[in-house]
Amino acid sequence: MTDVKDSKRSQKVVIVPCSGIGKTYGSVSREAAYVVTEDVRPDDTQLVALSMLVLGDESARAAVAANPAITIDGCKLACATKMVQESGGRVAQDFAVLEVYRRYKQFKPQGIAELNEGGMQLAEALANEIAGVVEKMSSSPAMGDEAIKNGAAQGSSNGGHNG
């Protein structure tokens, strides 16, 4: 029989970035998601593609249903956050790239296909904030519950929003 605590610990935080194609902030959101899931917290996080949620893909829906999600939106339409919610998932915290940029105005992002240095630095800064939230969530047996709220609250002070 699987211990509930172990089960909680085996969860991975789902990272869902905006799939924006025509805006710089969309590219920043995607790059930040890659930094988190490949470089900073590869063992605690998994990337879920927004297009699969749009299609209603079973594996993508199962991933967001079983794990807390952190969404990264590139514009005010907040597609990533809305799609996770509509797919039956729970957004532990959502980040809006524009709000993050307001805190790191020294990193001015430009480019879409290829981000400039400022865009890459902004993505790194955003990824570090996300990693901080993941750290709090992962270190608690009650991952996805109260610990998320506490972590998210701190994240919110950095510009993220509680889901």
Partner: peptide, 11 residues
């Protein structure tokens, strides 16, 4: 022209 796929639901 282009559009982001999720906007079919979120837009």
């Amino acid at each position: 022209v282009t559009i982001c796929l999720p906007l079919f639901l979120a837009g």
